[in-house]
Simulated scan of single mutants.
Amino acid sequence: MPRRETTRHERARREMTGSEQAAAAFDDLHTRHAAALMRQTYLLTGRPWLARRAVQQGFRRAWQHWPQVAVDPDPAGWVRAAAYEYALTPWHRLCPGLRTARKPKRFHETGEPADRALLAALLRLPAPYRRALLLHDGVGLGLYETAAEIEASTPAAAGRLTHARERLAERLPELGLDGHPPVRQGEILRDRLTALTAAQQVTPTAAERVRSDAERSDLRTTRAAVGLAGGFALVAVVMMLVTPDHYTPPPDRPLATAPHAVVPRTGHRGAEVRKQGNAAVRKRLREARLAPDVR
């Protein structure tokens, strides 16, 4: 009986087209990881609506690049990196309605004061420190995987993680991080962050809607590219019609001629004229030397 059910399942799977298999794989990935990613992104931003939008954008990009994501060793990590990048984009700070909160303006009334204090301390950390701490101590990635995801060297990732833990220990002494080795500090923070994310009630966007939004976005991008190319082609055609197809030389203009130079006469009389001129010049020079004002 189990073999017959397996055979039916395999037969139904074979009957699915390639697009249907891709959609089913994407929906399965969304179902397993969307809620957890929303909780993590909320700790990263402090805004529930921004966390929802970032995760939706991450899965939308994953569907747009599904052939690449499908063969990735960690598809969930691919989506997580895309969602984190969107959530920490600097342009969110330019608009008052899109700014990343530094204080937890929204938190469930059922949340404990200690959880609210931990969330506030997390949001006061610089974004690179907060991301490294969340990936290593919250998600549970190794130091090498954390460095690869934040696109930093392993020593740089270790430095950010150490500084983040030190600042949390200073602001929240009740965490009990002081006096413990790094491994124990990671265990304490992992337990607290896990409890903090579990307290968040999230409702991810349906996978079908994410896929349809991604497809509409691709269609709009394609139409814009086609329209832009058509506009350039129209401009080129108009320029070809307006521009003459042959070269027309400019009208001929009379050339400007220089005035005839007066050539001094040569011969005996010309020599006399030059001699008289030289004598007059020498006379003026002697008078200038004898003038009282010059002396």
Rank of each mutant, 00 (worst) to 15 (best):
M1T: 08
T6I: 02
E10F: 04
E15H: 06
T17N: 08
G18K: 06
S19P: 10
A22G: 05
A23Q: 12
A25E: 15
F26G: 04
F26R: 04
R32P: 03
A34H: 13
A35H: 01
L37P: 01
M38H: 07
M38Y: 03
M38S: 01
Q40R: 13
Y42C: 00
L43E: 12
L44D: 06
L44T: 02
G46T: 00
R47D: 05
R47M: 01
P48I: 00
W49G: 02
A54V: 00
V55H: 00
Q56K: 08
Q57E: 10
R60A: 04
R61Q: 15
W63V: 01
Q64I: 01
P67N: 06
Q68W: 10
A70M: 01
D72S: 07
P75S: 03
A76E: 09
G77M: 05
R80P: 00
R80W: 14
A81R: 15
Y84R: 08
Y84V: 09
A87F: 03
T89F: 14
P90W: 09
L94F: 13
L94R: 15
C95M: 13
P96S: 02
G97V: 13
R102E: 12
K105I: 06
R106H: 11
E109L: 09
E109D: 13
T110M: 10
E112A: 11
R116A: 06
R116K: 14
A117C: 09
A121E: 10
L125Y: 07
P126L: 03
P126E: 08
A127S: 07
P128R: 06
Y129F: 12
Y129E: 15
A132R: 12
L133H: 02
G138P: 14
V139T: 07
G140E: 09
L143H: 08
E145K: 07
T146L: 05
A147Q: 05
S153P: 11
P155W: 12
P155Y: 07
A156H: 10
A156L: 06
A157F: 05
R160I: 00
T162W: 13
H163R: 15
H163E: 14
A164T: 03
E166N: 10
E166L: 13
L168F: 05
E170N: 12
R171M: 00
L172R: 14
L172C: 06
E174F: 07
G179H: 15
H180T: 06
V183D: 15
V183H: 14
L189I: 08
A195Y: 10
A198T: 05
Q200N: 04
Q201I: 08
T203V: 08
T203P: 03
P204N: 00
A207H: 08
E208R: 07
V210Q: 05
R211G: 05
R211A: 05
D213M: 11
E215M: 09
E215I: 11
T222A: 13
L228E: 15
L228H: 12
G231N: 04
A233Y: 07
V237E: 09
V242H: 10
P250C: 02
D252K: 10
A258Q: 15
V263A: 05
G267I: 01
H268G: 11
H268S: 14
R269I: 11
A271Q: 15
E272N: 09
Q276F: 09
N278C: 05
A279M: 02
R282N: 11
K283I: 08
R284T: 07
R286F: 12
A288E: 14
D293Q: 13
V294L: 15
